[in-house]
Design a protein around this nucleic acid. Structure first.
Length: 371
RNA sequence: GCGAAAUUGGUGAAGUGGUUAACACGCCGGAUUGUGGCUCCGGUAUGCGUGGGUUCGAUUCCCACAUUUCGCC
């Protein structure tokens, strides 16, 4: 069955929403944060460790799994859940972000997007139909429409043409979508232009998707513009469907966008920051590589109850990162994912208590105050 | 004891009779947003073993000394 979203409560002073998503693998409250596991693994973490962090939905990537090991291998394994031993829900990104990060403008045509296989140099063509077909086989719980994530800066003309094409791609993908256990989301594009966001949202709603996401953010635009893009999109989306903001994971951005009506987020940042030695804390992001932590025998955070904070010191984790031992990246990944998931828990509480604006104020005071 | 070679940042080292002594690693910072994981961007020797000499000018040429390595007795 498709996922079911239920709106439980709206915060009194903002557009923030408390809700729940029912999936084939359990029911989860929103707002929520989804860790990213591009290659069918959240880098350095086992499924047990993800559970320990209270992870709900996790992401995997169509493009990467298409290239390696190939969707047929995963199909023959019995689907992505069995293949990677994850009994929670999975969302697959469509490859749309790779249009932004890997393809050149000339490789984007009406038919689809040309890529070069990084492993063997083969020429590849990813089309909306192909992306959906792969995702149907991967058997994730939520599939994404194949879109073009437009970078920043750009011209209005380009964004408009691209958005129109993304709409046509969404329609083509939906037409071939064929997996009764799976949901399909549409993606709102349109850059920073309200009329384009509006049009995109309205056209997607006509096609009737199981949920809607907002794309084209977190690609280098100013923060205020990102928030505006979210406002211009949420304004035209139905209340009874889940809203997913793609690629956003900076703590402040999560808060600001929850306030503007976003339900779910994903981001590589907790795991990437971890591999580069950074930890998220109440008092801002810290860099464990800094010399001042050499003999700091306290946990990353006294208030954090994650496995890393309960058992290890900054000094030890710094040593592991300096020595390029993977256990360091693993401990920091556990901490950072736990941090963002915990942030969404606190936001849910704030929505229940109708005090999310006060929560934001205090959060910012701590996060940008002295470290 | 005799002979030879060498001595440049924390490390491996390049280099030149004349502006800012290459590069790499390390170290010190910073970045990272639907992940082409182990990346990118800065900073890091007022100094070239020590002392003297030649020269307008020496890390570079000469002498002595020190240290190290190798060879011979």
């Amino acid at each position: 069955m498709a996922i079911e979203y239920t709106l439980l409560k709206k915060e009194k002073h903002t557009s923030a929403r408390l809700g729940k998503i029912k999936t084939n693998y359990g029911t989860y409250e929103t707002p929520m944060f989804m860790p990213v596991g591009t290659q069918a693994t959240v880098k350095t973490l086992s499924p047990e460790e993800l559970k320990m962090c209270d992870a709900g939905i996790i992401l995997a990537n169509t493009y990467h799994l298409w290239l390696r090991p190939g969707e047929d291998v995963i199909d023959h394994a019995g689907g992505l859940h069995k293949f990677m031993n994850w009994d929670g829900p999975i969302l697959t990104d469509s490859g749309g972000f790779q249009v932004f990060s890997l393809a050149k403008p000339k490789d984007i045509t009406e038919e689809g997007v040309k890529f070069k296989n990084q492993y063997n140099g083969d020429s590849l063509l990813l089309t909306p139909e192909k992306s959906i077909e792969i995702q149907n086989k991967l058997d994730s719980d939520i599939a994404m429409s194949f879109d073009e994530c437009v970078g920043f800066p750009h011209t209005r003309k380009y964004v408009e043409d691209s958005m129109e094409r993304t709409l046509r791609w969404a329609k083509r993908g939906k037409a071939v979508f064929n997996n009764p256990r799976q949901s399909l989301f549409g993606i709102v594009q349109g850059g920073e232009y309200e009329d384009l966001r509006k049009k995109c949202a309205e056209e997607l709603i006509k096609m009737d998707f199981d949920g809607y996401s907002i794309g084209g953010t977190a690609v280098g635009e100013p923060k205020e513009m990102q928030y505006q893009m979210v406002e211009y999109s949420c304004k035209y989306l139905p209340e009874d469907k889940v809203r997913y903001l793609m690629g956003v994971g900076d703590p402040i951005d999560i808060i600001e966008n929850v306030i503007r009506g976003i339900d779910i987020f994903d981001c590589v940042s907790p795991t990437r920051l971890a591999r580069h030695g950074h930890a998220l804390t109440k008092y801002g992001k810290i860099n464990l590589k800094n010399a001042k932590y050499k003999e700091d025998f306290t946990p990353i955070s006294d208030e954090c109850d994650c496995y890393a904070c309960k058992n290890y010191t900054k000094s030890y984790i710094k040593h592991l990162i300096n020595a390029e031992e993977t256990f360091g990246a693993r401990l920091l990944s556990i901490h950072n994912i736990n941090y963002l998931i915990n942030l969404t828990k606190e936001l849910r509480e704030a929505i229940k208590n109708d005090n999310i604006l006060e929560y934001r104020e205090e959060f910012i005071r701590n996060y940008y105050g002295k470290k």
